[in-house]
Simulated scan of single mutants.
Amino acid sequence: MKTRAAIAIAPETDLEIREVEVDEPRADELRVRMVASGVCHTDAIIRDQWYPVPLPVVLGHEGAGIVEAMGSDVQGFAEGDKVVIGPAFCGRCEQCLAGHPMYCVNFYDRNFGVQRPDGSKSFSDAQGPIGSHFFGQSSFAELTNVVAHGAVKVPDGVPLEILGPLGCGIMTGSGAVLNVLQPQPGSSIAVFGTGAVGMAGMLAAKAAGATTIIMVDIVPERLDFAKELGATHTVNSKETDPVEAIKEITGGGANFALDTTGVPPVFSQMTQSLATRGHGALVGAAKLGTEAPFAIGNLLLTGIKVSMVIEGDAVPKEFIPRLVSLHARGLFPFDKLIKKYPFEDINRAFADSADGSTLKPVIVF
């Protein structure tokens, strides 16, 4: 079957929209007609080869769409179901069985291998096979085959065109807060970075009842927007030492902190801004081999805990419906982070994400 797909062909090069062939879904797959897909920082860093993912490849991993066909072994889905698609995982390793599929021991191969476990690829054109199954979905295509266990059914009445980012970026920020940090009502949290992931973390902290929510960034407009969405304090770390500011605001340090940047000096600031026995989490991606300063001589007596968090340590089939429900009740207005782009403008969406003019671009097919 023919479809259109946006293909990454080389680092720091625009994606090419081409007509390609998409094969039949395998026994454990769904064919999904995409309605929309978020554009995530991870798509950009894979295009630019921060990680050695084979090119050419159809990227995209925040897809939302409608089921058109099902493989012979798929249960629990029907044609016409609306789905949001989360990451792939094996479902059989010790981490999957323990309820932590985002730490699947096969996570890298299943999400960055850009092929099925048997080595086959879903897309091809006259030039040959094209990488598929990025995060189990390759959602920058009008039609794509996805791993069924990564798909999450959502109610008919919800707006699919905004839900895709719940499968990665929004899930990452909110899950790091709700699933890992778990701030108590009345607690304090500092969030470093006001991109979509950081803003999602902030909205989640507000929904959880945190009453001191400090956003740290160097872009005044982003900080102002964070204040509009519910931050109680903002710190421009270009003008003010964020560690000193956070300790002054909280009277000694934040109970919780989240680094969404992956920038080594920012990670260090996060650890130093925590209160005694505080808990910090890192979700920001960095190049392989990146090291960050960790002042163990200063921090030993603080008893702090630091977690490295992938995809919000979520179980997507449980967590995404929670976020949909919170949004429906007006408690998690993540839609305010989104700007929509037609599929043909996908490269403009990448550029606007890179320069910060758009928090969360969403491609609409």
Rank of each mutant, 00 (worst) to 15 (best):
A254C: 04
K238E: 13
L229G: 01
D43N: 00
V114Q: 00
H279P: 01
T276V: 15
R329V: 06
G262W: 01
I320R: 03
E161P: 00
D109I: 09
V315K: 09
V74D: 00
C96R: 05
G113K: 10
F365W: 13
D118Q: 00
G99E: 09
G253Y: 02
Y51F: 15
P25K: 05
T212P: 02
D48I: 08
E142T: 01
A8I: 05
S353N: 12
D125F: 04
L323S: 02
F77V: 12
E318D: 15
E318K: 14
R222H: 06
P183K: 01
P56E: 06
V147E: 03
A231V: 08
F365L: 05
D118K: 00
P333V: 11
S72M: 06
S307T: 15
K360Y: 12
Q272H: 14
P87M: 13
G209I: 04
G356C: 10
G186H: 04
A69G: 06
V263C: 06
D313A: 13
P361W: 08
F294H: 05
G251T: 08
G173W: 10
M70P: 00
G193C: 09
G169A: 14
P25T: 06
N236I: 08
K2M: 08
A6F: 07
F332D: 12
G303F: 09
P264I: 11
E29A: 03
L59C: 09
P264M: 04
K206L: 09
G60L: 09
R222G: 10
N255T: 09
L258S: 04
H100N: 11
R18T: 10
E142G: 00
I214L: 07
A64S: 13
G164N: 11
K287Q: 03
K238W: 08
Y51W: 14
G175P: 12
S237A: 14
P185L: 08
G60Q: 02
D109G: 11
L59R: 00
R348G: 03
K121A: 02
H41W: 01
F107E: 04
V147N: 04
E221D: 15
V114G: 04
Q269A: 15
